[in-house]
Simulated scan of single mutants.
Amino acid sequence: MQKKNLKMLNILLIIIMISIFIYEKYPYKIYNKIKPTKFSESSHLKNENFKQQLGLYEHYRKKGKIVMLGNSITYRVNWNELLDRGDIINRGVESDITNGFLDRMEFIFNVYPKLCFIMGGVNDLRKGIDIETTTNNLLKISKLLQERKIIPIIFSVLYVDKAYPNYKDFNMSVTFLNQKLKDMCAINGIDFINLNKKLSKNGILKKEYSLDGTHLTGLGYKAWGEIMSPIIKEKLSH
C-alpha cells in the first residue's frame, strides 16, 4: 500500500513539473481561449503600418535627447506636447512586435539620443510569440543601446481592461511577461518601470485610463507622463 502511494505521488510530481514547464514556455497559449496566429520572425514586415512609418523615418532628420520605442500605445501621443518638451522623438509603430523593434534600430540610433524608453510585448502576446522570445528581444535591444552609450529604460506591458476579450486570461500572461522582464532587467542592470502600479488596479487597466480595452485615454497618457518626468530629469542631470 505504501509503495502504491509512493508511486502515485511520483506520478503526480511528474505531472506538476510538466505543467510548470508548459506554462513557462507557452503561457499565452494556455490562457488565451482564442487560438493565436502562427508566428514567423518576419511577420512584422506584413504590417502596413510598419512599412509606412519606416518610409517616413527614412526622411526624418530631427535629433533628440529622448526616443520612444514602441507600438501603437507609444505612437498615439505627442510626447513633446504631453511632457512640455522639445527633445523627444517618437518611434512608435502601430501593431508592431519586438522583432519589428529589432529590425528598425537604425532609426533609433540616428536620433543620437541619451535615453530610450521602450514599451513592447502586448502584440507579441496576441500573436502567440513565446515570452522567452519577447524577453530576449528586449534584452538584445537594450544591449545594442548600451553599446552606443544610450540608456535603455523598459516599461512594463500594460494590463487590458474588461472590454478586452478574455481579459482575465490575457492579463495572466501580461503578469508573467512583466515578471520575466523585471527579472531580466535586474540581472542586466537595466531600469524597469512598472506603469501598472499607477495605471492599473487588481491586475486590470483602470477604466478612466482605458479607451478601448487596450489603448489609453488622455488621462492615461497624463498619468504615464507624470511617471516619466522625474525619471527624465534624473537621467539627464548626470
Rank of each mutant, 00 (worst) to 15 (best):
Q2N: 14
Q2W: 07
Q2E: 13
K3Y: 12
L9P: 03
L9A: 15
I14R: 10
M17D: 02
I18M: 07
I20A: 14
I22K: 10
Y23L: 11
E24C: 13
I30R: 07
N32Q: 10
F39L: 12
S40L: 08
S42K: 15
H44E: 09
L45G: 07
L45N: 12
K46L: 13
E48H: 11
E48M: 13
E48V: 11
F50R: 01
F50L: 08
K51D: 10
L56H: 11
L56C: 06
Y57Q: 15
Y57D: 09
R61D: 12
G64W: 01
K65N: 08
L69I: 14
G70P: 05
T74W: 01
E81S: 15
L82M: 02
L83R: 06
L83F: 00
D84A: 11
D84G: 04
D87S: 08
D87E: 11
I89T: 00
R91K: 08
E94Y: 13
S95R: 13
G100E: 03
F101D: 03
L102A: 12
D103R: 09
R104W: 07
M105F: 10
E106N: 14
F107V: 04
F109Q: 10
N110F: 08
P113Q: 05
K114Q: 15
L115A: 00
L115S: 02
L115D: 00
C116I: 03
C116G: 08
F117E: 03
M119Q: 09
G120Q: 01
N123Y: 06
D124T: 05
G128V: 01
I131V: 15
T134F: 06
N136R: 14
N136W: 02
N137M: 10
L138S: 03
K140Y: 02
S142A: 11
S142D: 02
L144R: 11
L144V: 09
E147L: 09
R148L: 08
K149S: 14
I150S: 04
I151Q: 13
I151D: 09
P152S: 07
I153M: 12
I154A: 04
I154Y: 04
F155G: 06
V157E: 00
L158T: 03
L158G: 05
Y159H: 14
D161Q: 06
K162Q: 13
A163D: 15
N166E: 10
F170L: 01
M172E: 13
M172I: 15
V174W: 00
V174M: 01
T175H: 05
F176H: 13
L177N: 00
N178W: 01
L181W: 00
M184E: 06
N188E: 12
N188V: 04
I190G: 06
I190N: 04
D191T: 08
F192W: 07
L195R: 01
N196D: 07
K197Q: 13
K198C: 01
K201E: 10
K201S: 12
E208K: 12
S210A: 13
S210C: 09
L211C: 06
H215A: 04
G218I: 06
G218T: 09
Y221D: 04
K222Y: 08
K222F: 08
K222V: 06
M228D: 02
M228I: 05
S229I: 06
I232D: 00
K233V: 05
K235I: 03
S237I: 05
H238T: 12
